[in-house]
Nucleic acid binder design. Sequence first.
DNA 1: AAAGCACTTGCAACACGGTTGCATTTTAAT
DNA 2: ATTAAAATGCAACCGTGTTGCAAGTGCTTT
Lengths: 144, 144
Amino acid sequence: MVANNKDISSFLKTHGLAGTIIRKQVLSHLWGDGVALTQKEIEEKLPPETDRVTLYRTLRLFTEKGIVHKIVLNGETQKFKIAGRFRKSDHAHFYCTKCHKLLCMPQLDVDLSDLPEGFQFSSARLVVEGICDTCSQKNQTQTQ
Amino acid sequence: MVANNKDISSFLKTHGLAGTIIRKQVLSHLWGDGVALTQKEIEEKLPPETDRVTLYRTLRLFTEKGIVHKIVLNGETQKFKIAGRFRKSDHAHFYCTKCHKLLCMPQLDVDLSDLPEGFQFSSARLVVEGICDTCSQKNQTQTQ
DNA sequence: AAAGCACTTGCAACACGGTTGCATTTTAAT
DNA sequence: ATTAAAATGCAACCGTGTTGCAAGTGCTTT
Ligand SMILES: [Mn+2]
Ligand SMILES: [Mn+2]
Ligand SMILES: [Zn+2]
Ligand SMILES: [Zn+2]
């Protein structure tokens, strides 16, 4: 629970959604910059009596409304993340393998100069893995 | 059935695998440059009485042995493709949305010049979508 | 504050692909 | 042809996605 209830309630109202218990709970866990969670990870943070269908429907609703983005990490795992200022999730992301934050990086793209003659570029889903600035910093401080 | 049985049988022998019916059938459908198929697509090309578990185990075996690569297209669909000269599938691929061929493009990569200060790059699974050279050619000829 | 209605939830149930154990069949080596 | 090892077919189980519907809740209006 990172954000206070007032924030989350008004957030839901802004997006024309009823402020139900589970919706507030889910949002509270996704609140914060770079926070991205698996459906299972969210499920584990919720009270154990939570119905899995309701969680499923909640995440589907959020995704449809564009409130959260569903981002594929590596084919197996997909993470949910509050959309923030971006309408669509069609931009690149950076996934930190240390702190597991997922950060939007719309400036990143594929180097098309190496695309062979005759090939036409259309799109590329892009998730870059590595270590974020904060974690690099920490690591440097420790090893010094 | 693109390749002849001799080729496929020796291919299996080379990789230390028994030349069973279903293995030959699966390989024959994956034979050819750029051919990449979904498990379901393969299943539909096989005789209808084929057991789905056996197909599953066949593809898992091929993947484990490195004979075929399992490549995630867009989070939902993953395609199987004969590995060819590459040991691992950790290089970029180009997916043609017209002819649905999947081509290895190890020369493609992410433009890292835009990676912000302090971020360390580690890896990026990369599938570029677009139109391949052959399909571009055809399209040009038609519209002329 | 209470009522009414639309929306949401909880539950049971089904779909479907992955996965396993095991008895039977097939392959490859002798 | 014999034989041992490997592969297959089948039944069955699991987890996740998905739906229908009855019961419950949130929100607006009075
Ligand atoms: Mn984003
Ligand atoms: Mn490849
Ligand atoms: Zn980090
Ligand atoms: Zn093409």
